[in-house]
Design a protein around this nucleic acid. Structure first.
Length: 200
DNA sequence: GTTTCGATTGTG
DNA sequence: ACAATCGAAACC
């Protein structure tokens, strides 16, 4: 079993897009053993980024993003889905990294049970799919990913890709000029692209 | 107080 | 292409 090092707080106290890139190929692990390798992320930055939940300032919902780097911001959307972020900012609070897809690596039976009869390719390939597979809900909003004993992000010795795939972020209508979505090249577990509907 | 809409997903 | 589904954000 490879040695796994939980990422230190200082890791998250850096410029958000750098943290995003370096989270690729790290391992998101739950205390019950469910774990996956991070293969797709998006950076949401403070102040300048109209797509970020924090763009208009602190609210009850997004308060975690203004808190300690290295904590987990979990939000509810579309009336049914949870999505998970790692809070990551250096100077300006209110920024973080949305975890968009994992390659499942441990606890697959529990993941399949949580997700129903889906293929392994779709098990954790999407921001709400992976939270469902790992059992992440709003109860975990604000938890410390650095402290041991709970969910955490680990380094198992697999380096981030030297040349990650850069694209605009998914599912937003503003801030498309930024290439702040980062993927592991060639990963089969990146969230599947949706066919863009033709213009009338 | 009321309306709009979303950092999505599954199905048709 | 579209419905599901509900709370936060946006707008009066």
């Amino acid at each position: 079993m490879p040695r796994r090092t939980r990422l230190p707080r200082a890791f998250y106290q850096r410029e958000t897009t750098l943290v995003a890139r370096e989270l690729l190929n790290k391992v998101l692990a739950m205390p019950d053993g469910r774990a996956g390798r991070i293969v797709e992320v998006e950076a949401y930055c403070a102040g300048i980024d109209p797509a970020a939940h924090t763009y208009r300032g602190k609210t009850a919902r997004n308060a975690t993003m203004f808190g300690e780097p290295g904590h987990m911001y979990v939000y509810f959307t579309y009336g049914m889905h949870w999505c998970a972020n790692a809070v990551a900012w250096e100077k300006t609070p209110g920024a973080g990294v949305l975890i968009r897809a994992l390659e499942p690596i441990a606890g697959l039976p529990a993941m399949h049970e949580a997700r129903g009869g889906v293929s392994e390719r779709l098990l954790c390939s999407g921001p709400a799919r992976l939270t469902q597979a790992l059992g992440i809900t709003g109860e975990l909003d604000g938890i410390d990913l650095v402290r041991g004993g709970g969910p955490g992000i680990h380094d198992d010795g697999t380096h981030p890709p030297l040349h990650p795939v850069l694209t605009p972020r998914i599912g937003i209508r503003v801030g498309l000029e930024h290439l702040w979505r980062f993927c592991v090249p060639g990963s089969l577990h990146v969230s599947p692209a949706r066919v863009k509907s033709a213009q009338p």
